[in-house]
């Protein structure tokens, strides 16, 4: 009897586990099935490298969106990576343990703030400030990069913090015993030992930044054009899909799925890079 119930539970769990994997696979297949024929039909070059996005007249070039996504992600990394890594170093090395017990959960709470709230703050606070002090429309590449940079902080901080905390205490002791200051111990030994974990945190955060949609729609302005400066309004790949899917039909609809395929490839590349970096670390230690 016991053997029977054991088997049933195991089989039920197997089915559930496989159905979630199957769900993922089906989504991937669905996007590819809808998007790939379109790319093959109008040609990858016309789709990826043409700057004219005018679905009403049959022009489907997503080059401006690719450029916008890349710039906004790089901008976000420029903001988020140094802040996040600095935050992780500070939390590990310079904050007393009891304070850490308050600060770490608070940071993790930051990860739970809905992206629409970040967008809201961007629209109400950041964009007017940029408009007033730097010029341009305010809703811009810069606003998007700043908001995204803050949104990825929890990812960078929590994974980097774990990587730094995993550095053996003996390295720190060894450095201090040779007369190093705490900061010298950090940048000469600890950061080197935690390098791959920190790099992985940054790559994973890039994946988040590329895929973020709502906050970007709200603050980046969404004009389909190649940006000439950080104050220009831009539309990212994700924003393009979200903004037009509601009313798109026929080829236009397929073009949006194809945009999804491009995003999918972007994020897969970033995730496998992160995996590669982490695996390398495991092999070395």
């Amino acid at each position: 009897m016991k053997w029977n119930s054991e088997t049933i539970v195991r089989q039920v769990l197997t089915v559930i586990a496989f159905s979630s994997i199957a769900g993922l696979l089906l989504i991937a297949l669905f996007i590819l099935k809808e998007g790939l024929p379109f790319i093959l039909k109008i040609g990858p070059q016309a789709f990826l490298l043409n700057s004219n996005w005018d679905p009403a007249n049959g022009h489907y070039g997503i080059y401006p969106m690719i450029v916008a996504s890349i710039w906004i992600t790089l901008g976000a990394m420029l903001v988020g990576a140094p802040l996040g890594v600095a935050g992780a170093i500070f939390l590990n090395e310079f904050v007393p343990k009891p304070a850490m017990r308050v600060i770490k959960p608070t940071l993790e709470l930051l990860a739970g703030i809905p992206s629409v709230v970040f967008g809201f703050i961007g629209v109400m606070v950041l964009a007017p400030l940029i408009r007033a002090y730097l010029g341009g429309p305010g809703l811009s590449l810069l606003a998007g990069a700043l908001i995204l940079g803050i949104m990825i902080l929890p990812t960078v901080i929590s994974i980097s913090t774990d990587a730094i905390a995993a550095v053996p205490a003996s390295y720190r002791e060894g450095a201090l015993a040779l007369g190093a200051t705490r900061w010298q111990a950090v940048h000469m030994v600890i950061l080197k030992a935690a390098r791959s974990g920190i790099l992985a945190s940054i790559i994973l955060a890039m994946g988040r930044a590329v895929g973020e949609t709502m906050a970007v729609i709200m603050v980046a302005g969404n004009a389909v054009k190649i940006p000439h400066g950080p104050l220009d309004s831009v539309r990212t790949l994700t924003a393009n899909i979200a903004l037009e899917m509601g009313y798109a039909t026929g080829l236009h609809r397929q073009a949006l799925f194809a945009t999804g395929v491009v995003l999918f490839i972007f994020i897969m590349i970033l995730n496998s890079l992160a995996g590669l970096v982490l695996r390398k670390k495991v092999r070395r230690s």
């Binding site: 053996p168 003996s170 390295y171 002791e173 060894g174 450095a175 201090l176 015993a177 040779l178 007369g179 190093a180 200051t181 000469m188 030994v189 080197k192 030992a193």
Partner: peptide
């Protein structure tokens, strides 16, 4: 203290070379 530790050095129980 940093100067002191340059004068009074320490070798630990487990070898702890840096990952360099």
């Amino acid at each position: 203290v940093c100067d002191l530790r340059k004068k009074v050095g320490m070798v630990f129980q487990r070898p702890n070379p840096f990952p360099l």
